[in-house]
Amino acid sequence: MGKSSLHVLKGLDLEIKEGEFISIMGASGSGKSTLLNILGLLDTHDAGTYHLNDQIIENLNEKKAAILRNKFLGFIFQSFNLITYKNALENVALPLYYQGMKRSERNKKAMQYLDNVGLKDWAHHLPNELSGGQKQRVAVARALVGNPKVILADEPTGALDSETSAGVMKLLRQINDEGMTLIVITHEEDIAEMSDRIIRLKDGVIVSDQKVKKVKVKS
């Protein structure tokens, strides 16, 4: 946790509309994670402006940031970041706990979201009893359960094999189809191809911003 400041992002303009499915690509050190962390209010920007849901984000104290994260943002991490001593259901219910929802209510809702990702039968298993794909599905359910505006996913398939990755991406696609805004970081082309718009970063600036041609056949 170094204190030295390093300018990672060197000025970028980006507008993401509601309901978009965006992937951010770039080599290591290109600033893609930093961008995502700033978007997710996990990190702070020192220059420029950031509007989230038409609300300018500045001089945010940690309490306000926490409330905004809880209300508007859902996170999916490469290393899942599930709490190891809580079972799948409890992990999914955690954002609702911080929303102040009653236990019975939040367990019901969490179970419903676990069911949506196909893990109803695994609700009472601890994370270490689940496979990588299952863990990421739990994380997806957890990101969704609080009804956020945006889902931020940092290399959601980075720790998964290609088959499982495809499953997770299909799930994300499905979520987007239901209207959720998704921002995914990846360095795999085929993963990025599954989104609607690919933003490529290099050395802290956007080098390309293109729509993906829809190749998907609607069933």
């Binding site: 309490k63 926490a66 409330i67 996170f75 190891t84 954002p95």
Partner: peptide, 16 residues
Amino acid sequence: TQEIGIRRALGAKPIE
């Protein structure tokens, strides 16, 4: 620390 980080990402206020 990591668990606290997760909780904060999920919306736990510092006071909580």
